[in-house]
């Protein structure tokens, strides 16, 4: 473009053309990234970092709301106590917590199932890397285990609703359903991704060259599991 360069048709010594690396291979083969980590994986980690704050805020909201609810029940606020059956309120007031609501063994079982799905997810990734054709089995198993967890959550929500805990009734109901519901929505999103992978796997399109795709879904899935461990501990186990 410049006169000098045009005249002798050679790049000036200091110009970027003169110092460019010969990256012809690069253009077709592997892509250089500054961190040596693929963009997609980096992006997934960043997204999960953001999700941490999302769940952090939701869990804080739940903790505060539950504490306020219990305080009001103990204090005997008639506007709060009238939102649930009297005997349940009585139990809450006596235990000074919402623990009587929970069926710990049931939720422990469904939590265990969700945790196991992390194992099958790892196996699915391994099978994809090894390209041994078993990834469809493990991916399906992961999606299935996730679905069982969701079914358990739906059952639990129904049971709570019958016992008198509604979304709009009181603070605890709003906070409980919102927190666990947000997590459930995340699991559901994960199941949809897994099903897409299962579909690809059955069409033979999920070979070892796409192992990273499985890994990315796996990262998300493990994150959702870890969040559940936190939620289970905070919501169900700590009085």
């Amino acid at each position: 473009m410049t006169d000098v360069a045009a005249l002798d048709n050679r790049p000036v010594a200091n110009s970027y053309l003169a110092t460019a690396l010969d990256d012809h291979d690069d253009a077709h083969g592997g892509h250089r990234t500054s961190l040596g980590l693929s963009n997609m994986k980096l992006a997934m980690w960043l997204f999960l970092g953001s999700e941490c704050l999302l769940f952090g805020a939701l869990i804080s909201t739940y903790l505060l709301s539950k504490a306020r609810f219990v305080t009001e029940v103990v204090a005997g606020n008639p506007l709060v106590t009238s939102t649930m059956p009297a005997e349940l309120i009585q139990e809450f007031a006596e235990s000074q917590s919402v623990e009587p609501m929970y069926d710990i063994p049931f939720t422990s079982a469904s939590s265990f199932i969700l945790l196991m799905s992390s194992l099958t997810m790892v196996l699915a990734h391994k099978a994809t890397v090894e390209d041994n054709g078993q990834n469809k089995i493990w991916l399906s198993a992961t999606a299935l285990l996730g679905s069982i967890f969701i079914a358990g959550q739906v059952y639990e929500f129904t049971a709570f609703y019958r016992e008198g805990l509604t979304y709009t009734g009181n603070l605890f109901g709003s906070a409980f359903y919102t927190l666990t519901g947000f997590h459930g929505a995340h699991v559901t999103g994960g199941i949809l991704m897994l099903l897409s992978l299962v579909y690809m796997a059955f069409r033979g399109k999920l070979r070892s060259d796409r192992a990273e795709t499985v890994e990315l879904v796996g990262l998300y899935w493990h994150f959702v599991d870890i969040v559940w461990v936190l939620i289970f501990t905070i919501v169900y186990l700590i009085p």
Binding site: A57, S174, T178
Partner: peptide, 28 residues
């Protein structure tokens, strides 16, 4: 994401009758 949570809470309050900011239910 923190703003998102705040706005989701407020939206559920306003649109679906949740109680996150309902003082009479003990909300802070």
């Amino acid at each position: 994401p923190v703003l998102t949570v705040a706005q989701v809470l407020l939206s559920t309050d306003r649109l679906f009758g949740a109680n996150f900011f309902n003082v009479e239910q003990g909300a802070d």
